[in-house]
Design a protein around this nucleic acid. Structure first.
Lengths: 190, 190
DNA sequence: TATTGTACCGAACAGATCGTTCCGTATCGG
DNA sequence: CCGATACGGAACGATCTGTTCGGTACAATA
């Protein structure tokens, strides 16, 4: 990929992320992004068809990483792991958010949280399905599986949102404890 | 209130509600509402300062009613009650939604659900606080109260959303059963 | 190094939407 | 019946959008 393209794309992402933490998405004009990124109008539209597509690409870049690592894909073995093997995937996510993904946290706590929450939940559902449903780890088998998956992912995202609203005072372990307490009826212990 | 005002306001609400069930909120132009409601441009801006305020007023009108009845306010006694006294407030809400508030359900299942979900949750929190927190009905007292209230309201809204996504095939009683099953750890039995 | 392709820039464009203004008309409440 | 007020229609400047064009700067390749 051309250095110029990569540099421009990064500048746009950076400017957009900054603006998202300041204004609401609807109030951000393309001109704002252009000015902040210090690029030409033509250049922006050469990279992204519209503001919506820019948002979509940003989301995929942000959440793709955290979910990939949580999935336990091969390439995670080459990184330093902050969690022991016995920790739950949720604690792993909380720690990872706190340590490496502050930009996600910032966007989740911004005025635009709904946009990112949708992506977060959608990715979490896949993760939960892969992690639990396949292995029959749902304790309440009488309830529809998609209902349970939806409930767990929503509860986790809500937990993270609450954590943020409290200023992240509590350690990830405590928050994980809260979360496990409210869904213990559903999830079998690992 | 002037008949003309009331009539115009109703026409705007009606047109707006229709449009919301067709398009996404962001894609609705003021001109669309004006055309659908068959009013003048000046008239719209005489009633609502902006599209945002129109949305806010619509939400207050929609959710104000259902929450008021659920709160058990005096005026509910003069209505026919579909629930016996021993039914939970959640079953009451589910039945009320199914029978009387199909416009809320339609908007909750529309492309604009995030907007209405925010209002729904906000109202539910007040309801839950009034219904349970005051009476010490939280079983897991070790967890922060606001965390629990947030969890319950979110779970209920998610439950309704799931119910809708399934085409509301199941009766309110079954859905209420699912909901109580996933939050039974938190809520003491009534 | 010279060349060729490609990314970028700047200015300008038409089109859509917004919120406001002015003035004439129609309708309401008393 | 009359004063008040809500409505309608047309037009306004302002803002944002997405595109076009011609020229410039930079990257990869021979």
């Amino acid at each position: 990929m051309d250095r110029r393209q990569k540099k421009t794309r990064e500048a746009i992402f950076q400017a957009f992320t900054e603006l998202l933490s300041e204004k609401h998405y609807n109030q951000i004009a393309v001109q704002d992004i252009i000015d902040r990124a210090d690029i030409g109008r033509t250049t922006f539209y050469a990279h992204f068809e519209t503001k919506e597509y820019l948002l979509k690409d940003l989301c995929e870049e942000l959440f793709g990483h955290i979910i990939d690592t949580a999935m336990g894909l091969p390439h995670t073995h080459y990184h330093y792991s902050c969690c022991s093997d016995t920790d739950s995937v949720f604690l792993h996510l909380l720690r990872h958010l706190q340590e490496n993904d502050r930009n996600i946290l910032e966007l989740l706590s911004s005025q635009n949280n709904e946009i990112f929450i949708r992506y977060f939940k959608s990715n979490l559902k896949q993760l939960i399905l892969r992690q639990y449903a396949d292995k029959g780890l749902f304790a309440v088998s009488a309830l529809p599986e998609d209902y349970l998956v939806n409930h767990i992912s929503s509860s986790f995202v809500e937990t993270v949102g609450w954590w943020l609203s409290q200023g992240m005072k509590e350690p990830p372990e405590a928050v994980n404890g809260y979360f496990l307490a409210v869904i213990e009826t559903i999830l079998k212990q690992e």
